[in-house]
Design a protein around this nucleic acid. Structure first.
Lengths: 218, 218
DNA sequence: AAATATTAATGTATTTTTTACACTATCCTA
DNA sequence: TAGGATAGTGTAAAAAATACATTAATATTT
């Protein structure tokens, strides 16, 4: 790409969370090209002139992860003069959370193979991506307390213990089992399934599904 | 301005709230130029290439109202393809709330004299400004419940009844006087002044000031 | 000077929400 | 069949939110 100094460029960056190995992780790529060549960064790219912002975010996410039809939340833009040495670049971060289990991370022309990094152990990052991630993490935490965004990361059928673990890992704190279940049952968002899940030498756990699979604020 | 079809343009739009005549109002201008010539719109303008987004918002607000050093909250961008017929324009809305009493609204080269419009009685608006205003109003309401942003709109010295009125007008609902005062006193953000305010044939009201004039989340 | 009208100031009881906490159930394995 | 493991369940206490009515201080009217 041939950068001109007389215009704006608009990028989208995706802060894609998942839970792997009981840790909250995000996708980080390693940059192949300047600026910040060799540095780690959020996956992202330039918005096309005839492309909506949401569309660009969906496209980028698809390229990196193969994941489609996911809820993407637009965040406030970051656009300080000088944040990108190539020119004046405004970036629009998107927040997503996906079930990482089956995702195959691809390399792209601009980035070496994407990898999952623990949110608590990030490498040094290009641009202002550290700041963006920190902002997105706060948003994720407030979002999960006020919406059913958690369904994005959980399998169709799940046990209450599994769901609680998702909340605990995202919020980074222990929750009380009975209080957690009480609140859930008041919200009426779960459907009890006629199946159970056996795992190990103990009582099998009831399986549930979300009543509404769509994104919904409580 | 000579628009090219091969690049992005970035604007800032200000959703500037105030309370006048016991009503929540925002600044609306009337456009002098196409597109949407003659339509009403939010004040705003193009970000310069060497100008930060916040800087552009401050500048626009200053031009329209003469107000400086105000808290401006950046909101999520709006950038659908086709929202501006001149080219691809991404706009970044900013939320502000100011004391409108002493503000002199100016006309600018791009806009006829700005006017205050009741939030509940807006004219037909250009672009996607209706959607932006609706989003900003929600933000304002959640902000005022979780921060001391109200100090932006209230005089240095004020009575508790006056402060309550601000909350009622913004939230568009009656509040209980005793509960309102109890919560305020728990927050420890007010300083009781040794003065009172006499207005009308009744007991004079104690004056207060904010302990912290800076913007602060509770 | 007393009565009236008007808004300021104040506290308590009730309801709702949040938090803390421990035992029984069901399965597998040894 | 005893032991180990996680599932499942309810209640009491604390905290937060809500509902509500009387007295205080002033100017005006009579």
């Amino acid at each position: 790409m041939n950068f001109k100094k007389d215009r704006f460029y608009v990028t989208v960056d995706a802060v894609v969370f998942t839970i792997l190995d009981n840790e909250l992780k995000i996708i980080i790529i390693r940059r192949k090209n300047p600026p910040f060549k060799g540095y780690f960064a959020l996956p992202g790219g330039f918005v096309e002139l005839d492309e909506n912002l949401d569309g660009a975010a969906e496209r980028e996410l698809k390229e990196e992860t193969g994941v489609e039809n996911i809820f993407l939340k637009k965040l406030k833009p970051f656009g300080k003069v000088g944040r990108d040495s190539r020119g004046r670049v405004i970036t629009i971060p998107y927040l997503a959370i996906i079930s990482g289990k089956n995702v195959k991370l691809h390399s792209t022309c601009d980035a070496e193979l994407a990898r999952w990094y623990s949110i608590y152990n990030l490498p040094k990052l290009a641009f202002d991506h550290k700041e963006i991630i920190s902002y997105a993490l706060n948003k994720l935490r407030s979002e999960i307390e006020k919406s059913n965004i958690a369904f994005q990361i959980i399998p169709k059928k799940f046990t209450l213990t599994e769901l609680q673990r998702v909340y605990e890992i995202i919020l980074n704190k222990k929750l009380d089992k009975r209080n957690f279940r009480k609140k859930l049952s008041e919200l009426l968002i779960l459907k009890e399934l006629p199946e159970t899940k056996m795992e190990g030498a103990h009582r099998p756990a009831r399986l549930y599904s979300f009543r509404l699979r769509e994104y919904k604020k409580f």
